Computed example of a mutant assay.
Amino acid sequence: MAADQAHLHGKRILAVDDEVDILETIEDILDMATVDTAQDYEHASEKIRTQTYDLAILDIMGVNGLTLLEETVAKGIPTVMLTAHAVNPETLMASIRKGAISYLPKETLVELDDFLEALLAAQAAGKPPWKLLFDRLGTYFDERFGPDWKNKDEAFWSDFSRHWEVGRGIQSRLKHDRRLLDKGI
């Protein structure tokens, strides 16, 4: 095991996408983990209900990913949204609101293992995973959406920036975290 794959090694990951080549690519990139796949909402939802996962990677389009996100959050599964066609500020904000820990354009798929390793390391260290996304891909979003894209929803982004540590998504995940619920928190 390489030191740079310590957080991914042995993890059980659910990858959901309607494109077989994307799922195969994810499996190849994340060969240090056990990757379970689904190509549609129904199969993914069944797996979420009946299996245990350390992480989920969900496409937004084609598989009803934002609804699946609600299901993974309810099960306490940290979830990364992966998209090509829905790379826009609205789905980014919806992903945050619904509890995803990150949002990645498929264009960055070749770096998936490095990004997930850094994301899981940040989360394990108690650092906000969304900050890592914007540190790494902030320029990408500015170029894709325009330099003033956050100004359209200034109140949302202002609130979000003030609450990196306990954002709405984190609060939503915590409400479903068995470790906390079992302690009466």
Score class of each variant (00 low, 15 high):
20 V>W: 05
3 A>N: 14
138 G>M: 02
158 S>E: 08
122 A>S: 14
105 P>Y: 12
161 S>L: 09
62 G>D: 07
137 L>C: 03
8 L>G: 04
146 G>C: 09
31 D>W: 13
14 L>H: 01
6 A>Q: 12
169 G>R: 00
119 L>Y: 05
16 V>L: 05
155 A>V: 09
13 I>A: 07
92 L>V: 01
108 T>Q: 15
152 K>P: 07
122 A>Y: 06
9 H>S: 14
72 T>A: 07
10 G>S: 10
161 S>H: 09
89 P>A: 08
64 N>S: 10
48 I>V: 12
7 H>F: 13
9 H>P: 05
58 L>S: 01
119 L>C: 09
75 K>E: 06
117 E>Q: 13
24 E>I: 03
169 G>H: 00
66 L>M: 05
152 K>Y: 09
57 I>F: 09
75 K>L: 09
68 L>D: 01
97 R>Q: 10
39 Q>G: 04
164 W>Q: 00
37 T>L: 02
181 L>T: 11
59 D>T: 08
138 G>I: 05
165 E>M: 07
45 S>H: 14
74 A>S: 12
140 Y>W: 08
1 M>P: 02
44 A>G: 04
164 W>V: 00
84 A>D: 15
176 H>E: 06
47 K>E: 10
148 D>C: 08
126 G>Y: 14
133 L>N: 06
93 M>R: 12
21 D>N: 14
16 V>F: 07
99 G>V: 00
72 T>S: 08
145 F>V: 02
152 K>N: 15
11 K>P: 10
29 I>Y: 03
95 S>Q: 02
33 A>C: 11
109 L>E: 07
69 L>I: 01
173 R>C: 00
68 L>H: 04
2 A>I: 12
15 A>G: 11
183 K>I: 15
93 M>V: 10
91 T>S: 13
31 D>S: 14
168 R>D: 09
177 D>C: 11
80 V>F: 09
124 A>K: 11
79 T>D: 04
36 D>T: 11
172 S>I: 03
103 Y>A: 04
155 A>M: 11
59 D>I: 03
8 L>N: 02
13 I>F: 07
109 L>N: 14
109 L>Y: 11
55 L>P: 06
136 R>A: 12
179 R>E: 10
67 T>R: 12
41 Y>G: 05
77 I>M: 03
160 F>S: 00
51 Q>K: 15
129 P>H: 01
45 S>V: 06
24 E>P: 04
138 G>A: 03
